[in-house]
């Protein structure tokens, strides 16, 4: 059997990923995570002195903490298998990427294991996040200087 022929057979046999179903699942679970996040930030605003402008930091910390607990007891990967992007895109997914790497590399010690592998998965998120933020800020700065838009 030739390569092309086999690739045709492979495409015929392999089931198509259920995109619509995946999108719906991601929407519901991602939405639920954000709903919980909203509840957490409401909690911080009602019971502590945080405004909408300042509540972001404690909320993110709390959500990452929740995701740490869920990752630790092995539940987050199950949520991830069900929800896909729904649980990967919110900040809990970032937390999961960091914490799962930390758990994984605990056996190599704190410095060479946890320390150097903590951002194995999340490192590129941090890097490209910072780089793209820089370019977005640069473009906006140029536009403001030219008088096209205001801050």
């Amino acid at each position: 059997m030739e390569k092309e022929q086999y690739q045709k057979l492979e495409q015929y046999v392999t089931p198509k990923p259920p995109y619509l179903k995946n999108v719906a699942k991601a929407f519901v679970v991602g939405g639920l995570i954000c709903l919980i996040g909203q509840a957490v930030s409401l909690f911080y605003m009602v019971f502590f002195n945080f405004t909408e402008a300042t509540v972001g930091n404690p909320t993110v910390a709390t959500m990452v903490f929740f995701s740490m607990i869920l990752t630790g007891i092995g539940l987050y990967k199950r949520i991830g298998q069900f929800a896909g992007a729904g649980s990967a895109v919110p900040v809990t997914g970032f937390g999961n990427a960091v914490i799962s790497a930390a758990i994984e590399h605990r056996s190599e010690g704190f410095v060479l294991g946890v320390g150097s592998n903590l951002f194995k998965l999340a490192g590129s998120v941090v890097l490209f996040g910072v780089v793209s933020a820089f370019f977005v800020a640069l473009i906006k700065y140029i536009l403001v200087t030219l008088g096209v838009v205001s801050w």
């Binding site: 409401l42 605003m45 009602v46 945080f50 405004t51 909408e52 402008a53 509540v55």
Partner: peptide, 10 residues
């Protein structure tokens, strides 16, 4: 001072 912040409203 005008504020649209939920905390201030609360």
């Amino acid at each position: 001072l005008v504020s649209a912040d939920y905390k201030i409203f609360y």
